[in-house]
Design a protein around this nucleic acid. Structure first.
Lengths: 167, 167
DNA sequence: CGCGACCCTTCACGGTCGTGCAACAAGCGG
DNA sequence: CCGCTTGTTGCACGACCGTGAAGGGTCGCG
């Protein structure tokens, strides 16, 4: 993932936008402006003028963190779903559904696949899946995760912040 | 926790020592030295000469991170549970239960495991564990620790402050 | 355009079962 | 006697999970 370079405080809005999207960013602080408060671990800043090597050093640290901090949420064997330092406990059916979603994180999982994952020994009525997806949705919202519907195709799991320009 | 300031590359050895101890540290890079490779998230650097405000900004970010990386409570052989400078005394059964919880700090411990830990020679009736967990809960609340229920799976111990999106 | 078929979301309900909690009783030491 | 620890009972509450039904989009067809 690329590290965004932007001028501070000129591009204040863009910084906010990048932060919401979880993008790593290096703020180039102009002249004698006060240094910004670092919003999260994917943000850093450097005062201009600065040597290229110095900028590169900070960029590569941010890139490394972004690489590491990206990985998908984790579901442990006790049904705890952990993400971003927080966690929720998932009841059995929802834990199995989440397992299927995590197996294809950020890609579409069909209803059939979800039904097989949730009820290995034959699924109940058709509505059961819908209702469980609703409940799962509400649970993972607290972790800033979102389950998106892909009409007539299935569902996918991703970070809540990123707003897909979907279709 | 204080953030250590040290000169780079002059105090190279001290930096290594601090890193091993998990102490936060800010490297002050002299003249035209190459910026160091950041060892972990508790390390940062700034090129001299630098404004006081700039140094302060980086120091406070490091201090914040250090605050967030947390220690684990300790239970000594006399049944004293220590955490965050305070302590409580635990009666025998509850001390054994706490031992099991500490063995898997922040992860789920099943009811069966707790029962075995609390009553090595066979457990009493069905509700004894529930009631003891209740009493343990109230004792450790004073240390800002919380025992969370994970329905149908067990219990886990964590800091009370961290508001998991729990359920 | 209206109409219906589909797909999906959301709510409300009831059955079942795990857990929280107050209260009580027994044992033990000071 | 009092206070602390421990075990027990009984009930209330809420989580979990399936079901039915209302409602809103979207699509194709006449």
């Amino acid at each position: 993932m690329d590290v965004a370079l932007l001028r501070w405080p000129l591009e204040r809005d863009r910084r906010e936008e990048l932060r919401r999207d979880g993008q790593p960013r290096l703020l180039l602080v102009e002249g004698d402006e006060a240094p910004p408060t670092v919003a999260d671990e994917l943000e850093d800043w450097i005062r201009l003028p600065a040597a290229d090597a110095d900028v590169q050093a900070r960029v590569s640290v941010l890139a490394g963190r972004a690489q590491r901090s990206e990985p998908c949420p984790e579901l442990d064997s006790d049904g705890l779903l952990r993400f971003g330092g927080r966690w929720v406990s998932l009841p059995p059916v929802e834990a199995r559904l989440m397992g299927a979603l995590l197996g294809r994180y950020r890609a579409v999982v069909s209803r059939e696949a979800l039904a097989r994952a949730g009820w290995p020994h034959g699924s109940p009525g058709r509505n059961a899946l819908d209702v469980h997806m609703l409940r799962l949705r509400r649970r993972v919202a607290g972790l800033e995760l979102a389950i998106r519907t892909v009409r007539s195709r299935g569902y996918l799991l991703e970070r809540a912040a990123t707003e897909a320009a979907s279709g």
